Simulated scan of single mutants.
Amino acid sequence: MPAHQRADARRNYARILAVAEEEVAAHGVNASLEQIARTAGVGSATVRRHFPTRSALLKAVSRTRIEALCVRAHDLAGEDDSRSALLEWLSDVVAYCASARGFAAALAYDDEAGPDSVYENACSAAIEEAGAPLLHRAVQDGAVERGITIGELITLIVGIALASEHHPDPAAQADRLFRLAVAGLSPRS
Results as ranks from 00 to 15, higher is better:
168 P>F: 09
12 N>H: 15
165 E>P: 04
42 V>Q: 01
84 S>K: 12
79 E>T: 05
130 A>L: 07
188 R>N: 06
148 I>G: 00
113 A>C: 01
23 E>P: 07
50 H>Y: 04
151 G>H: 01
35 Q>K: 12
64 T>Q: 12
51 F>Y: 14
32 S>L: 10
29 V>P: 08
21 E>T: 14
106 A>P: 08
85 A>K: 08
178 F>E: 06
1 M>E: 10
125 A>D: 08
107 L>P: 00
152 E>Y: 01
85 A>M: 09
8 D>A: 12
146 R>G: 00
93 V>E: 02
133 P>M: 05
53 T>L: 01
137 R>F: 04
161 A>H: 09
119 Y>H: 10
46 T>R: 12
48 R>G: 14
122 A>D: 11
167 H>S: 10
127 I>P: 07
5 Q>T: 10
28 G>F: 11
93 V>H: 03
41 G>I: 09
29 V>N: 05
85 A>S: 12
6 R>L: 13
87 L>V: 14
10 R>D: 03
128 E>N: 12
53 T>P: 02
58 L>A: 02
16 I>R: 03
74 H>M: 11
68 A>Y: 07
47 V>R: 02
64 T>R: 14
139 V>N: 00
143 A>T: 04
39 T>S: 08
137 R>W: 07
58 L>F: 03
2 P>R: 13
145 E>A: 13
90 L>S: 08
173 Q>H: 13
135 L>A: 03
187 P>G: 07
7 A>F: 09
80 D>N: 09
91 S>E: 12
7 A>I: 13
53 T>I: 01
74 H>S: 15
80 D>L: 09
168 P>K: 09
